[in-house]
Design a protein around this nucleic acid. Structure first.
Lengths: 248, 248
DNA sequence: TTTCGTGGTTGACGTGGATCAACGGAGGGC
DNA sequence: GCCCTCCGTTGATCCACGTCAACCACGAAA
């Protein structure tokens, strides 16, 4: 194992998460001043590695912390008594998990790693405490929660008012946009989730998702092979949503 | 909804909103101490009356305040460029509106009064400021936002995984439960929204909503007449969700 | 290398809810 | 009072997506 240059790894490095982290502009510290961010370092107590398919938390677990994803992908889902599962979101680097737990002090959904991942553990009581003194933190945390609410409304729109192909188009555009913000290619990526999980998220059956992928491919909009997707014609993708196939 | 006896309105009543308000245990001050609540009175600057069908705010409006409903009913919705509308929620007395605006400092949805209504205007900068010193306020505000996220996940479940009759059953049970919490009859109420609006919320067409109402009536689960609903057999309503008609 | 299991694709067919259409009833405005 | 508009109901028909089933691709384990 080689270490970059000759900087010794100290306890400080491990502890001082935020100020050293390259996810600044994607994560909770976004928009905060340098001095504010340096105060955040006391916030992230631990990091936690989660292997693929393992739970970060489960519905019913007592709520203690929220999590910022450092590396990897997660899905969150809720499950009905009869076993029906609804995926409520896919989260990637820099995004927050666990906000659902604040309301009842118990998590109300499951968070599962889609690949080997790592999260920063942010003790909630510490966050409340610190956000009383670090103004930027309070503000940014509220924004993060609000953004989640807005995102959820978008998903409702998708589930309540769009047809299968529009939903998939919206899904792909959303992924592309979030990957771009993280410096990845906007046009080419690997899906971390199965067709079944995409279907659950989009309110469709996996066969319908698969057929929509194939249709897009036939029409020269994307190139798919299993989990690998390349967006060939992003305009067409946009138009699919703006001008639905059937005028209704 | 019945109106409480007519108490003369004084200036004190108007200014000292929270400590005098009978919505304490439903609204933002929930769980706060008496001294904490008395500090909230400086928070609610104004009240605002909104007539039926009028907007409290519109998508695109600059965000300045959140709102607590004192009297009345609202719906929130998002509208796509092509005109498709998705109702994202129905809000009643004691519930909060405007949380969507925090993330971008611009409202992302419309809030429309379903009947003549009145809200408490809570300036957001004041809220942030005060929640730094009043611990209970900070905590409660976070809970309110988190609860909204959890509620949204429930709607996703509904839209993504339930069939038409289950959706309507879940909707009616949810209304019943919220009305009960406000001291109204759990079994008999007036809907403030049209079939079309219910349909938009539930991801169904108004005809489907109407048919589901009729079906429930035939089966002796409810009695409906236009907007008046009486739940006759609440157990059957619960079972409709727990044991969906078709085993799948 | 083969086998096995999981995940993805594709076709044939069924159906729940959308669409189209006609009508009836309630309530507000005058 | 009457009109007019909006809203709700119900029936007939259609179609987007679900269901069922067969098969294929890929990666891990043996």
């Amino acid at each position: 194992m080689q270490v970059k240059a000759t900087v010794p790894i100290t306890v400080a490095d491990i502890k001082s998460a935020c100020s050293q982290c390259n996810l600044l502009e994607l994560c909770l510290p976004f928009g905060m001043s340098e001095t504010e961010i340096s105060r955040l370092d006391e916030l992230v107590g631990t990091r936690r590695k989660i292997k693929r398919q393992q739970h970060l938390y489960r519905a019913g677990d007592p709520f203690e912390a929220i999590y910022a994803i450092r590396i990897g992908w997660f899905k969150t889902d809720v499950v009905l008594e009869d076993g029906r599962e609804q995926v409520t979101g896919f989260q990637m680097t820099g995004e927050m998990l666990g906000l659902d737990g604040i309301s009842t002090e118990t998590h109300s959904c499951n968070a599962v790693a889609l690949e080997d991942s790592e999260v920063c553990v942010i003790a909630y009581d510490k966050l409340e405490e610190l956000s009383r003194v670090v103004l930027g933190l309070q503000h940014q945390f509220h924004k993060v929660m609000s953004r989640e609410i807005v995102r959820d409304h978008g998903v409702m729109m998708l589930l309540g008012s769009m047809r299968a192909e529009e939903r998939l188009a919206a899904f792909l555009l959303n992924l592309s946009q979030r990957l771009t913000a993280r410096g990845f290619s906007p046009a080419e990526f690997h899906l971390r989730m199965t067709r079944d999980e995409i279907g659950s998220y989009l309110g469709l059956k996996l066969e319908t998702v698969s057929r929509a992928f194939s249709k897009f491919q036939e029409e020269g909009i994307i190139a798919v092979q299993q989990k690998h997707v390349r967006i060939v014609d992003i305009d067409k993708l946009h138009k699919l949503i703006q001008h639905p196939v059937a005028l209704r």
